[in-house]
Design a protein around this nucleic acid. Structure first.
Lengths: 113, 113
DNA sequence: ACATTATTTCTATATTTATGAAAATATAGA
DNA sequence: TCTATATTTTCATAAATATAGAAATAATGT
């Protein structure tokens, strides 16, 4: 991971519609969702949605596969994890645990133990 | 954490100079660094640096404290962790571990065990 | 071939943002 | 108070980005 790639990826989710889109697909899992389902869920006009999906794909945070008339978009979990790791890399001057571990789907409270 | 706050925070680090600044301060730990030290390390002119530090502060990702002539900037780890948690919230449709845990200062390799 | 549905590209307009020189402000010590 | 150092604000210019309607492209079933 280098600075430029991280900036590209961060910029791609630093936008209200795209952040919603990305989080929806992160939650959707490995199967992804067709573009239309995303647009319907988030009330985004088709052309605007297409623009945003392209931005996220260009940044490498989404992949897609065509299935008949539908184009399924899928979150790229490796890319997301790489980005998060870059942000927290060597953090806290070696002091343990000033960064919380970010565990998939686990709420903060559950991590206190 | 809501969408707008997350977008503000992501936008604040979605810029080459600011991402460098933020990561430097994340690595610097709880003591932070004076603005001048950041500028010297990253070769950023004072006025430009001040603009970027303000952006990061406005987003809540940095705090600062004045000490004599120096203004120390400090990464806000709680805000960072909140942001990362928001991105991965409820991820992967309940399937365990498609998201890697992001552990502070621990390289990916060491997590394989 | 045709009608239907899904998605993308084209287009124009409006808005936001980055940059660094110069000036202003703030603090400390002599 | 005077001087040196640290930081911020002001300012103008340049560049990048978001939006959605309309038209174009693609795939399906009849």
């Amino acid at each position: 991971m280098d600075n430029k790639l991280a900036v590209t990826q961060l910029a791609s989710i630093a936008q209200e519609a795209r952040l919603d889109i990305f989080r929806l697909l992160v939650q959707a899992g490995a199967g992804g969702l067709p573009a239309g389902a995303v647009g319907e869920r988030l009330k985004i006009p088709a052309s605007t949605l297409s623009f945003h999906l392209k931005e996220l794909s260009r940044a490498g945070l989404l992949s897609s596969r065509q299935q008949g008339r539908y184009v399924y978009y899928i979150a790229n979990y490796d890319a997301m994890n790489g980005l998060l790791a870059y942000l927290t890399e060597n953090c806290c001057a070696g002091q343990a645990s000033c960064c919380l571990d970010v565990a998939c789907g686990v709420e903060e409270k559950e991590l206190q133990s």
